[in-house]
Simulated assay, not measured.
Amino acid sequence: MDMGFRHGSYGEDVPPLLDLVERAEPELRGADQLRWATLLGEESNNLRAALEWATNNDLRTALLLVAGLSTFWWMHGLRAEAARAARGVLDALGPTIPHGLGEEYLLAVLHAAGSAQPAEVERAQNATGRLFDRPVTVLLWSFVLGPFQPARLVTDVLAANERGGDAWGRAAVQLCRGYPSLAEGDPAGSERALQNALARFRLIGDRWGSALALDALADLAANSGRTELAVDLLGQALAIAGELGTDERAALVLCRRGDLRLGLGDPAAARADYTRALELGLKAGLPETSAAARIGLARAARYAGDLSSAREYALAALPDCDTDWAGADLAKAEALAELAKAEGVSATTSGGPRRISGGWLESG
Rank of each mutant, 00 (worst) to 15 (best):
L39M: 09
L297E: 03
R152N: 06
L140N: 04
K332C: 05
L110Q: 05
A151E: 15
G68H: 12
G305F: 10
D232K: 13
E52C: 01
G164I: 03
L106Q: 10
E312Y: 10
I356A: 05
G129Q: 08
D206H: 14
R23K: 11
G114I: 05
R276H: 15
L220V: 02
G225E: 01
L65Q: 03
K283G: 10
R202Y: 04
G129Y: 03
R152G: 04
R29W: 08
E22D: 11
T155V: 06
P180W: 15
A337M: 11
L278G: 03
A314M: 06
Q195K: 15
A24T: 03
Q149M: 14
D322A: 13
R299L: 06
E288M: 07
L212N: 14
G88V: 04
D306S: 12
A241Y: 11
H76P: 04
R271D: 10
D91R: 08
I240E: 05
G225H: 10
A269K: 11
A301R: 05
G68D: 09
L264R: 12
A314Y: 07
W208C: 13
A112W: 01
A24G: 10
E243K: 13
N161G: 07
R35M: 07
K341Q: 13
Q174D: 13
R29H: 11
E12I: 02
N46A: 01
G263E: 09
L182I: 12
